[in-house]
Design a binder for these strands. Sequence first.
DNA 1: CAGACTACCTGAAGT
DNA 2: AACTTCAGGTAGTCT
Lengths: 171, 171
Amino acid sequence: MFEKALTPSDVGKLNRLVIPKQQAEKYFPLSDSGENKGVVLSFEDESCKCWRFRYSYWNSSQSYVLTKGWSRYVKDKRLLAGDVVCFLRRGRQSHQKQSCNKVLRLFGVNMECQTPPETQDKQEEAGESTPQYPTTTHHMTSSSTYHNLYHYHHPSYAHHHMIQVEYPPHN
Amino acid sequence: MFEKALTPSDVGKLNRLVIPKQQAEKYFPLSDSGENKGVVLSFEDESCKCWRFRYSYWNSSQSYVLTKGWSRYVKDKRLLAGDVVCFLRRGRQSHQKQSCNKVLRLFGVNMECQTPPETQDKQEEAGESTPQYPTTTHHMTSSSTYHNLYHYHHPSYAHHHMIQVEYPPHN
DNA sequence: CAGACTACCTGAAGT
DNA sequence: AACTTCAGGTAGTCT
């Protein structure tokens, strides 16, 4: 889907992550109805720990942000500016199509990968039918559409963490 | 009414003007009802350009401030610390009483003035019935009570600008 | 009460 | 040049 290199603000005292508008509107659309106050997105990290982040739109700055809960995640994962957060689409129904041909071991997590992450964004933009981002070997247990979110300290993979977000949210 | 010599903070990155409490409560009272979030005051400068500043009370610092919009005015007018902002009451009904006996030409604006600005504050404080501040010769076109606000680089008049504020606000 | 959170705001930069 | 975006802020409330 997309990725973002974390800014100092994203990991600092502002306790929020700005999601670039274009990506936010494409992948995490908020309906105009009752979602003016945002929604809670449920994530799950590599250890199956649940993380819930509030996702909303700030009219004043015309920005989409993850707010409540984000700072706890930054602290727990020791995220630093320069780390990159990658959001990846992964629907249950398209899970099979995403089977990869390489396995990368990161932080004790086996990850399958079809192509190197550096080249994935352009390829992904070129066509949804051939997902290339790394994906965990964890099995999805819900029928919802899922996304993967992970981050790394650019350009190495030293600080990769895997997290999965359910979208659209269902609670 | 009153004047304030601008501090570095008033023209700096804080993007706000602190209005001395005594003056604020006397001339720009905020009702306790729906005005906890402040009001927008509409000003008009010597070229009839409209300036809208948010005026509110900051509980944390127990201060009355002009916030939103103020920084644009500072930048546009190139205000500097040391410049003095003068707030003058000028009601439509009291306009005639304010007829002055001197005309000062400042930045292309004819200003009438009864006494030198340096001595006006004390005199004004002594009695509302003999307003002495300079006032433009522009005609008021609203039935609302108006105030004048202008600033100058103390102690000369090199940076005078005239601006008029409607108070109480009606929109 | 300190830190988290909400909802604002702005300047700089890009388009 | 006007407009949009967003990184870095603020005040005030909540927990």
